[in-house]
Design a protein around this nucleic acid. Structure first.
Lengths: 113, 113
DNA sequence: CCTGACTATTTTGTATTGCAAAGTACCTTG
DNA sequence: CAAGGTACTTTGCAATACAAAATAGTCAGG
Protein backbone atom coordinates (compact mmCIF):
# COMPACT_ATOMS: atom_id res chain seq x y z
CA UNK A 1 0.00 0.00 0.00
CA UNK A 2 1.29 3.41 -0.94
CA UNK A 3 1.03 5.62 2.15
CA UNK A 4 -1.37 8.50 1.86
CA UNK A 5 1.21 11.18 2.59
CA UNK A 6 3.32 10.02 -0.32
CA UNK A 7 0.44 10.54 -2.73
CA UNK A 8 0.12 14.20 -1.91
CA UNK A 9 0.75 16.32 -4.93
CA UNK A 10 1.36 13.40 -7.27
CA UNK A 11 -2.19 12.15 -7.27
CA UNK A 12 -3.50 15.37 -8.73
CA UNK A 13 -0.96 15.23 -11.53
CA UNK A 14 -1.78 11.62 -12.24
CA UNK A 15 -5.45 12.38 -12.61
CA UNK A 16 -4.60 15.17 -15.01
CA UNK A 17 -2.61 12.59 -16.92
CA UNK A 18 -5.55 10.22 -17.10
CA UNK A 19 -7.80 13.01 -18.28
CA UNK A 20 -5.32 13.93 -21.00
CA UNK A 21 -6.02 10.62 -22.68
CA UNK A 22 -9.75 10.90 -22.83
CA UNK A 23 -12.58 12.62 -21.02
CA UNK A 24 -13.91 10.47 -18.23
CA UNK A 25 -15.58 10.47 -14.82
CA UNK A 26 -14.67 9.89 -11.20
CA UNK A 27 -15.75 6.33 -10.77
CA UNK A 28 -13.85 5.25 -13.87
CA UNK A 29 -10.75 7.18 -12.83
CA UNK A 30 -10.78 5.26 -9.60
CA UNK A 31 -10.56 1.92 -11.39
CA UNK A 32 -7.92 3.20 -13.81
CA UNK A 33 -5.72 4.26 -10.91
CA UNK A 34 -6.06 0.79 -9.45
CA UNK A 35 -5.06 -0.69 -12.80
CA UNK A 36 -1.94 1.46 -12.95
CA UNK A 37 -0.79 0.18 -9.59
CA UNK A 38 -1.97 2.79 -7.14
CA UNK A 39 -4.06 0.90 -4.66
CA UNK A 40 -7.73 1.59 -4.21
CA UNK A 41 -7.99 5.36 -4.00
CA UNK A 42 -11.18 6.00 -2.03
CA UNK A 43 -14.06 8.18 -3.16
CA UNK A 44 -13.37 10.68 -0.42
CA UNK A 45 -10.13 11.42 -2.23
CA UNK A 46 -11.12 11.32 -5.90
CA UNK A 47 -14.25 13.43 -5.91
CA UNK A 48 -13.06 16.34 -3.79
CA UNK A 49 -9.91 16.43 -5.89
CA UNK A 50 -11.92 16.64 -9.10
CA UNK A 51 -14.06 19.41 -7.66
CA UNK A 52 -10.92 21.29 -6.75
CA UNK A 53 -9.52 20.88 -10.24
CA UNK A 54 -12.75 22.20 -11.66
CA UNK A 55 -12.83 25.15 -9.31
CA UNK A 56 -9.28 26.03 -10.31
CA UNK A 57 -10.09 25.91 -14.01
CA UNK A 58 -7.83 22.95 -14.82
CA UNK A 59 -10.72 20.79 -15.98
CA UNK A 60 -14.22 21.39 -17.29
CA UNK A 61 -17.15 19.18 -16.40
CA UNK A 62 -20.53 18.16 -17.73
CA UNK A 63 -23.16 15.81 -16.36
CA UNK A 64 -24.36 13.15 -18.75
CA UNK A 65 -26.81 10.31 -18.11
CA UNK A 66 -25.61 6.73 -17.99
CA UNK A 67 -27.50 3.81 -19.50
CA UNK A 68 -26.88 1.67 -16.47
CA UNK A 69 -26.82 3.80 -13.34
CA UNK A 70 -26.97 7.34 -12.04
CA UNK A 71 -25.72 10.27 -14.11
CA UNK A 72 -22.01 10.69 -14.59
CA UNK A 73 -19.95 13.84 -14.38
CA UNK A 74 -17.47 13.81 -17.24
CA UNK A 75 -14.28 15.81 -16.91
CA UNK A 76 -11.90 17.00 -19.60
CA UNK A 77 -8.65 18.97 -19.51
CA UNK A 78 -8.63 22.69 -20.18
CA UNK A 79 -5.56 24.35 -21.71
CA UNK A 80 -4.60 25.43 -18.19
CA UNK A 81 -4.93 21.80 -17.16
CA UNK A 82 -2.61 20.65 -19.93
CA UNK A 83 -0.06 23.23 -18.89
CA UNK A 84 -0.35 22.05 -15.31
CA UNK A 85 0.20 18.47 -16.45
CA UNK A 86 3.40 19.47 -18.22
CA UNK A 87 4.53 21.22 -15.08
CA UNK A 88 3.72 18.17 -13.00
CA UNK A 89 5.73 15.86 -15.23
CA UNK A 90 8.69 18.19 -14.94
CA UNK A 91 8.40 18.43 -11.16
CA UNK A 92 7.96 14.72 -10.77
CA UNK A 93 11.04 14.04 -12.86
CA UNK A 94 12.98 16.38 -10.62
CA UNK A 95 11.83 14.65 -7.46
CA UNK A 96 12.38 11.25 -8.97
CA UNK A 97 15.93 12.11 -9.91
CA UNK A 98 16.72 13.51 -6.47
CA UNK A 99 15.34 10.49 -4.63
CA UNK A 100 17.08 8.21 -7.09
CA UNK A 101 20.37 9.93 -6.41
CA UNK A 102 19.94 9.54 -2.70
CA UNK A 103 18.74 5.94 -2.69
CA UNK A 104 21.38 4.75 -5.11
CA UNK A 105 23.99 6.19 -2.78
CA UNK A 106 22.78 3.87 -0.04
CA UNK A 107 23.20 0.41 -1.44
CA UNK A 108 25.81 0.92 -4.10
CA UNK A 109 28.30 3.44 -2.78
CA UNK A 110 30.11 2.68 -6.02
CA UNK A 111 28.53 4.37 -9.03
CA UNK A 112 29.38 1.58 -11.42
CA UNK A 113 28.11 -1.96 -10.93
CA UNK B 1 11.48 23.66 -7.65
CA UNK B 2 9.85 20.54 -6.26
CA UNK B 3 6.44 21.55 -4.90
CA UNK B 4 6.02 21.17 -1.18
CA UNK B 5 3.05 18.82 -1.41
CA UNK B 6 5.07 16.40 -3.47
CA UNK B 7 7.69 16.09 -0.75
CA UNK B 8 5.24 14.88 1.84
CA UNK B 9 6.12 11.44 3.03
CA UNK B 10 9.20 11.12 0.85
CA UNK B 11 11.22 13.71 2.70
CA UNK B 12 11.05 11.78 5.93
CA UNK B 13 12.24 8.64 4.18
CA UNK B 14 15.05 10.50 2.49
CA UNK B 15 16.33 11.84 5.78
CA UNK B 16 16.27 8.33 7.21
CA UNK B 17 18.32 7.35 4.20
CA UNK B 18 20.88 10.06 4.86
CA UNK B 19 21.12 9.03 8.49
CA UNK B 20 21.69 5.42 7.48
CA UNK B 21 25.01 6.41 5.97
CA UNK B 22 26.39 8.17 8.98
CA UNK B 23 25.21 9.98 12.06
CA UNK B 24 24.84 13.67 11.36
CA UNK B 25 22.95 16.82 12.32
CA UNK B 26 20.21 19.03 10.91
CA UNK B 27 22.26 21.76 9.36
CA UNK B 28 24.40 19.24 7.51
CA UNK B 29 21.37 17.25 6.36
CA UNK B 30 20.02 20.41 4.82
CA UNK B 31 23.07 20.86 2.62
CA UNK B 32 23.17 17.17 1.70
CA UNK B 33 19.58 17.32 0.49
CA UNK B 34 20.50 20.28 -1.68
CA UNK B 35 23.43 18.32 -3.09
CA UNK B 36 21.17 15.39 -3.98
CA UNK B 37 18.90 17.64 -6.01
CA UNK B 38 16.12 18.56 -3.62
CA UNK B 39 16.09 22.33 -3.55
CA UNK B 40 16.80 24.23 -0.38
CA UNK B 41 14.72 22.54 2.28
CA UNK B 42 14.17 25.21 4.92
CA UNK B 43 14.97 24.85 8.62
CA UNK B 44 11.29 25.05 9.48
CA UNK B 45 10.96 21.71 7.73
CA UNK B 46 14.13 19.88 8.75
CA UNK B 47 14.22 20.45 12.47
CA UNK B 48 10.59 19.71 13.30
CA UNK B 49 10.86 16.57 11.19
CA UNK B 50 13.91 15.41 13.12
CA UNK B 51 12.16 16.07 16.41
CA UNK B 52 9.25 14.01 15.20
CA UNK B 53 11.52 11.14 14.20
CA UNK B 54 13.11 11.26 17.61
CA UNK B 55 9.77 11.33 19.40
CA UNK B 56 8.67 8.31 17.39
CA UNK B 57 11.79 6.37 18.25
CA UNK B 58 13.14 6.15 14.71
CA UNK B 59 16.30 8.06 15.56
CA UNK B 60 18.28 8.75 18.68
CA UNK B 61 19.96 12.07 19.35
CA UNK B 62 22.85 13.51 21.33
CA UNK B 63 24.14 17.05 21.65
CA UNK B 64 27.82 17.50 21.01
CA UNK B 65 29.85 20.71 20.94
CA UNK B 66 31.24 22.04 17.70
CA UNK B 67 34.65 23.60 17.33
CA UNK B 68 33.31 26.38 15.15
CA UNK B 69 29.83 27.34 16.31
CA UNK B 70 27.01 26.35 18.64
CA UNK B 71 26.52 22.77 19.77
CA UNK B 72 25.16 20.27 17.27
CA UNK B 73 22.48 17.69 17.77
CA UNK B 74 23.66 14.48 16.14
CA UNK B 75 21.08 11.95 15.04
CA UNK B 76 21.50 8.27 14.27
CA UNK B 77 19.11 5.56 13.14
CA UNK B 78 17.57 3.18 15.65
CA UNK B 79 16.62 -0.37 14.60
CA UNK B 80 13.05 0.89 14.24
CA UNK B 81 14.39 3.64 11.99
CA UNK B 82 16.19 1.14 9.78
CA UNK B 83 13.03 -0.90 9.47
CA UNK B 84 11.12 2.24 8.58
CA UNK B 85 13.71 3.06 5.93
CA UNK B 86 13.27 -0.37 4.36
CA UNK B 87 9.52 0.18 4.38
CA UNK B 88 9.95 3.57 2.76
CA UNK B 89 12.11 2.23 -0.05
CA UNK B 90 9.51 -0.41 -0.75
CA UNK B 91 6.66 2.09 -0.74
CA UNK B 92 8.56 4.53 -2.89
CA UNK B 93 9.31 1.83 -5.44
CA UNK B 94 5.62 1.04 -5.57
CA UNK B 95 4.65 4.64 -6.14
CA UNK B 96 7.41 5.12 -8.65
CA UNK B 97 6.27 2.13 -10.65
CA UNK B 98 2.64 3.23 -10.64
CA UNK B 99 3.43 6.76 -11.77
CA UNK B 100 5.84 5.37 -14.34
CA UNK B 101 3.13 3.14 -15.73
CA UNK B 102 0.74 6.02 -16.01
CA UNK B 103 3.13 8.55 -17.48
CA UNK B 104 4.57 6.16 -20.01
CA UNK B 105 1.06 5.50 -21.24
CA UNK B 106 0.76 9.18 -22.13
CA UNK B 107 3.56 9.75 -24.57
CA UNK B 108 4.26 6.26 -25.86
CA UNK B 109 0.90 4.56 -26.18
CA UNK B 110 2.98 1.69 -27.57
CA UNK B 111 4.70 -0.37 -24.91
CA UNK B 112 7.73 -1.17 -27.03
CA UNK B 113 9.96 1.54 -28.50
C1' DC C 1 -42.77 -5.59 -4.94
C1' DC C 2 -38.74 -5.32 -2.29
C1' DT C 3 -34.18 -6.08 -0.88
C1' DG C 4 -29.45 -6.12 -1.92
C1' DA C 5 -25.52 -5.16 -4.98
C1' DC C 6 -23.32 -2.24 -8.05
C1' DT C 7 -22.85 2.28 -10.08
C1' DA C 8 -22.04 7.28 -9.13
C1' DT C 9 -21.62 11.78 -6.73
C1' DT C 10 -21.56 15.13 -2.76
C1' DT C 11 -20.45 16.96 1.77
C1' DT C 12 -18.34 17.46 6.38
C1' DG C 13 -14.72 16.88 9.28
C1' DT C 14 -9.95 15.11 10.58
C1' DA C 15 -4.90 14.07 10.53
C1' DT C 16 -0.54 14.64 8.61
C1' DT C 17 3.17 17.34 7.13
C1' DG C 18 6.01 20.90 4.79
C1' DC C 19 6.86 25.66 5.58
C1' DA C 20 7.09 30.67 7.14
C1' DA C 21 8.54 33.49 10.76
C1' DA C 22 10.56 34.76 14.76
C1' DG C 23 13.61 34.01 18.49
C1' DT C 24 17.89 32.20 20.88
C1' DA C 25 22.71 31.42 20.91
C1' DC C 26 27.60 30.33 19.64
C1' DC C 27 31.78 31.69 17.04
C1' DT C 28 34.90 34.48 14.00
C1' DT C 29 36.39 38.65 11.70
C1' DG C 30 36.80 43.50 10.82
C1' DC D 1 31.00 46.01 18.98
C1' DA D 2 28.66 44.91 14.72
C1' DA D 3 27.98 41.52 11.10
C1' DG D 4 27.67 37.09 9.17
C1' DG D 5 27.76 32.24 9.26
C1' DT D 6 26.53 28.21 12.09
C1' DA D 7 22.89 25.71 14.63
C1' DC D 8 18.52 24.64 16.99
C1' DT D 9 13.56 25.54 18.79
C1' DT D 10 8.80 26.91 18.78
C1' DT D 11 4.29 28.54 17.12
C1' DG D 12 0.97 28.70 13.79
C1' DC D 13 -0.68 28.05 8.97
C1' DA D 14 -2.00 25.83 4.50
C1' DA D 15 -2.63 22.00 1.53
C1' DT D 16 -4.37 17.53 0.71
C1' DA D 17 -5.60 12.49 1.24
C1' DC D 18 -9.05 10.09 3.67
C1' DA D 19 -13.06 8.35 6.62
C1' DA D 20 -17.84 8.40 6.98
C1' DA D 21 -22.35 9.23 5.91
C1' DA D 22 -25.98 10.64 2.84
C1' DT D 23 -28.31 10.58 -1.73
C1' DA D 24 -29.79 8.23 -5.89
C1' DG D 25 -30.13 5.53 -10.04
C1' DT D 26 -30.29 0.57 -12.25
C1' DC D 27 -30.92 -4.33 -12.12
C1' DA D 28 -31.36 -9.20 -10.51
C1' DG D 29 -33.41 -12.58 -7.27
C1' DG D 30 -36.82 -14.07 -4.16
Amino acid sequence: MIPTQMLKGTLEGCILGILSQKETYGYEISSQLAAYGFGTIPEGTIYPLLLRLEKNGLVSAAYRPSELGPRRKYYSLTPAGEAELQQFMQNYAELSRAVGNLLSALKGDTDHE
